[in-house]
Nucleic acid binder design. Structure first.
Lengths: 94, 94
DNA sequence: AGTATTTGGTTTATAATGTAAACTACTTTA
DNA sequence: TAAAGTAGTTTACATTATAAACCAAATACT
């Protein structure tokens, strides 16, 4: 029987963000927005959800006078991502 | 930049159904319902969507007097599934 | 100097989607 | 013959994703 896929990760944009954060020590808001080819509003909402779940850590600071949002994946986030990938493999294997 | 994931396939239940159909010549409604651990209503709706997209072919017949719904993946469905998996790999690779 | 425009976001409203509950039709069992 | 089971479909609701609208500050025009 097929196992459940973590609904928080099974969303194109959130999965994309998590994927990028798995491969970088940290990433800025604008970088995530560009790489996922998404809108600022959508990225903002999804970052909040990932943060609320404890999957990422968000730090808000300033680059001179411009706001700067930096994101990092947490240990919990890494574990969740890896579990998601393991479960997913059952779905996509031939 | 991350590519788009076919939204028709990026749904737990539809992906599960397609995964099962990729690995079987055909499958009955009740089999799909059990393997995906889903409800009949949900399976019915998602089968219709996959069928409307031309990803599967649905045949309705009778097993004696009981209705029997049999599903088969189409060439288009196989292609879409394979493309989905290829795109997805960019998301889940480290 | 005043006013567009851009940057870097957040909040909110809407559209789309998934899901289960309710229903249909027929069959089997008590 | 009434109740329960099988095999689904339809419909209504709740969740979700997404973009539009908005905010605050900085920079660029004229």
């Amino acid at each position: 029987m097929l196992r459940e896929l973590d609904p928080l990760l099974h969303s194109q944009l959130r999965l994309g963000i998590m994927s990028l954060l798995m491969n970088a020590e940290s990433a800025e808001f604008t970088y995530l927005k560009e790489k996922t080819n998404s809108t600022a509003g959508n990225v903002s909402v999804q970052l909040d959800k990932l943060s609320a779940a404890g999957y990422i850590h968000i730090e808000k600071s300033f680059n001179g006078k411009k706001p700067l949002t930096t994101c990092r994946i947490t240990k919990k986030g890494i574990k969740a991502f890896e579990e998601y990938v393991n479960t997913l493999k059952d779905y996509i294997k031939k």
